[in-house]
Design a protein around this nucleic acid. Structure first.
Length: 670
RNA sequence: GGGCCUAUAGCUCAAUUGGUCAGAGCCCCCGGCUCAUAACCGGGUUGUUCCUGGUUCGAGUCCAGGUGGGCCUACCA
């Protein structure tokens, strides 16, 4: 029986460029796909691009382009990037392709016919960049602005189709229970489970506010929600141009940020359609680069392709692939640092692997008749056999990091073996038979390593084999390793040799690489904006969100709101208030429970989301501006707020409005 | 607030279901070798396994509580 292996990456949204993060996912998928090909498994590796959505439609319009033309250009960048990183997907799907749109519509119709999609209404504040609605509550700290993008949200009311996600809560939990490896690593699975246990709401799965998407079957006014559209790619790729549905179910590689869509929404869609669920969803960790979070600037600056080409035109790509797989335990967060890459290039790849090949060459110019293997030879061959099994087991367990570690251990053993057997002594004596005996297992080590490392470093593997005069790797099935049989080299075979695989870098080159691929200095535009300020008088306030600080600060365009009359304004009962009591609300991180004297008979209670910006002590006694005739708001447990304290906010902080001088409580504000 | 993950040598990380002196690489020191990319091999130094309790014949591993770091989620008039 043929084993099948179907691995997918997310389809990448084309408003971004291919960067280290997406490269990591894609390379990991490629490594596993290559491994399974070697095993002779029928293998399919899918990646692609997600091209629909309001955001693309708008940007294209701004540039005066047809959205399809715009998408064509960006998608092509992704398609071109992967081969340059040694990745060879079997299919590259685009959500704007006819075959995908047809397939997504078919999935939709199946789910609708089964009664799991219904027509309703959705009203809310929408962020174009997120493709998501926000509740007003979610925007309290940044009124009118998306908390993620800091751009204005838009009030949108639309008719919408809904998916009955709520109906699948129990079925999902039951499925999770029955399939303990459905999501890996286990910790991530726990997160998914607890999210589902907290309750699922029906999901709005269509939009009418734009038309750059897959039309809803039978209702052209609607296009599908991007996630419905996007997730279906894993199936639609299998149906066209030829029938590959036998590959289903897939293993989905995803970043942990989009795990929820893959581990909850997607399985629910599939259940609704009566389709088998994915075999597994593997959430890998996030990378930092040289210890820094992946900010927008970093993403744009640090190009994995350019790094690979700068390291070496021949083995740079494989070096990057190797380091990504080796340095970061697959599934965990990790750091990718240029210094670490150069270190591993020299030490592990150069000294260990490259040098091993090099020191074998002088004794194996031609394969000569060998004598009976002694104990050291037998031991080394034993180790090789064990390595093949152990490495395969690691790869099978989606643990490329472990596989690499195991393979390099046998290389160290081989180096030890040469030291111990000292072939140069026999060589000097002219005992060529002894030399051949010693060399024989070393050639086995290198040959086996060339196959085992091929998934990670296909180019390097090819070069090793070329130098050893071995046939190229058979990517449809490399028979010799599984089950493992000792390779026999024909006597008289001339070993080609060749250049060093990983030539030592000049110190100048190392320095230049470190310089070129170090993270750019952090943006200091905030201080630059105030040139008159000398450093000594600069405030040393600790800003609240260090993660955001690394992002370039782009001032969001202020969208003018509709004009109102004076009468409208006069309806606001605005007064000066004095905070006379303040305490934190228990169990609510951001809420302060305040008593404010607004000139009424008694201080009024106001619950305000200010705790992130003010401690009770800081706010106590402050003169603030209060909107007094706002409808009361109940926070539950008897917490009723009878007004609102005006505050100004930007992405950095939140400050209440004050009053100059000593105005009395209750003074009118207009 | 609810939840998840994580903490092991100077650095990066390992330690099958609780079971022999807690290991490896890098760095550093000493020695060996000279085929090889000043490479290779051997030896050595470094640990309160974050803290406090508990279960057990036995805990890095399990339990409870705490601390640091990361993340998911909720409240935000």
């Amino acid at each position: 029986m043929t084993n099948r292996f179907y691995v997918t990456t997310p389809i990448y949204y084309i408003n971004d460029v291919p960067h280290l993060g997406t490269a990591y996912t894609t390379i990991a998928a490629d490594v596993l796909a290559r491994y399974h090909r070697l095993r002779g498994d029928e293998t399919r590796f899918l990646t692609g691009t997600d091209e629909h959505g309001l955001k693309i439609q708008r940007v294209a319009a701004e540039q005066g382009l047809d959205p399809q033309v715009y998408a064509d250009g960006l998608s092509a960048k992704f398609r071109a990037a992967w081969p340059r990183l040694g990745c060879a997907p079997d299919d590259f799907i685009r959500t704007t392709e006819e075959r995908h749109m047809r397939g997504a519509q078919k999935l939709w119709s199946t789910i609708k016919d089964a009664g799991h999609i219904y027509l309703g209404h959705y009203e809310g504040l929408y962020c174009v960049a997120c493709e998501a609605y926000y509740t007003e509550k979610e925007l309290a700290l940044t009124p009118g602005l998306c908390p993620v993008h800091k751009t204005p949200v838009e009030t949108v009311k639309e008719e919408s189709y809904f998916f009955k996600l709520s109906a699948f809560q129990d079925k999902l939990l039951a499925y999770y229970e029955a399939h303990p490896d459905f999501v890996r690593p286990a910790g991530r699975f726990n997160e998914v489970k607890s999210f589902v246990k907290e309750g699922l709401q029906d999901l709005s799965v269509s939009r009418t506010t734009f038309n750059w998407g897959v039309p809803v079957p039978g209702d052209d006014r609607h296009v599908m929600y991007v996630w419905f559209d996007a997730l279906s790619n894993y199936m639609t790729s299998l149906s066209a141009p030829e029938d590959n549905t036998r590959f289903w179910p897939a293993i989905h590689f995803v970043g942990k940020d989009i795990l929820r869509f893959h581990a909850i929404f997607w399985p629910a869609f599939l259940m609704a359609a009566g389709i088998e669920l994915p075999k597994q969803i593997f959430a890998h960790g996030f990378l930092t680069y040289c210890g820094e979070k992946m900010s927008k600037t970093l993403r744009n600056t640090i190009s994995p392709v350019e790094l690979a080409e700068a390291i070496s035109p021949t083995v740079g790509v494989d070096t990057v692939r190797y380091c990504l797989m080796r340095a970061i335990a697959f599934g965990q967060d990790g750091d990718f640092a240029i210094k670490d890459v150069l270190q591993r290039y020299e030490s592990e790849l150069g000294n260990n692997l490259g040098n091993l090949l090099n020191r074998v060459k002088p004794f194996t110019k031609e394969v000569l008749p060998a004598g009976e293997p002694g104990q050291p030879e037998a031991d080394l061959l034993q180790a090789v056999t064990r390595t093949v099994d152990a490495a395969a087991k690691a790869f099978d367990d989606l643990n490329p990091t472990g596989a690499i570690t195991i393979i390099f251990e046998v290389l160290t053993l081989a180096n030890t073996y040469i030291n111990d057997t000292a072939p140069w002594i026999a060589h000097k004596k002219g005992d060529l038979k002894r030399v051949a005996t010693i060399m024989s297992p070393l050639l086995v080590v290198l040959e086996v390593a060339s196959v085992l490392l091929a998934p990670v470093m296909p180019q390097v593997a090819a070069r090793v084999r070329e130098q050893l005069a071995l046939a190229p790797i058979d990517w449809s099935k490399h028979e010799a390793l599984w089950p493992f049989t000792l390779p026999v080299r024909p006597e008289g075979l001339v070993v080609k040799g060749g250049d060093q695989l990983f030539p030592r870098m000049e110190p100048e080159k190392i320095e230049a690489l470190i310089k070129a691929f170090s993270p750019p200095p952090k943006s200091t535009d905030v201080t630059e904006a105030a040139p008159a300020t000398t450093p000594s008088t600069t405030e040393t306030t600790v800003t609240a969100a260090p993660a955001e600080a690394t992002e370039p600060r782009v001032r969001a365009p202020i969208e003018a709101m509709p004009t109102i009359s004076y009468e409208d304004f006069a309806r606001l009962d605005l007064r000066v208030g004095i905070v006379v009591a303040a305490e934190k609300v228990k169990k609510k991180d951001k809420l302060l429970d305040l008593r404010v004297d607004t000139g009424d008979a008694a201080p009024r209670r106001i619950v305000a989301g200010l705790a992130a910006a003010y401690t009770p002590e800081q706010i106590l006694g402050k003169r603030v501006v209060v909107l007094c005739n706002l409808a009361p708001r109940d926070f539950g447990k008897g917490l009723v707020s009878e007004g609102m304290i005006l505050a100004a906010s930007d992405e950095a902080s939140l400050k209440v409005l004050g009053v100059d001088g000593e105005k009395i409580a209750g003074a009118k504000v207009s």
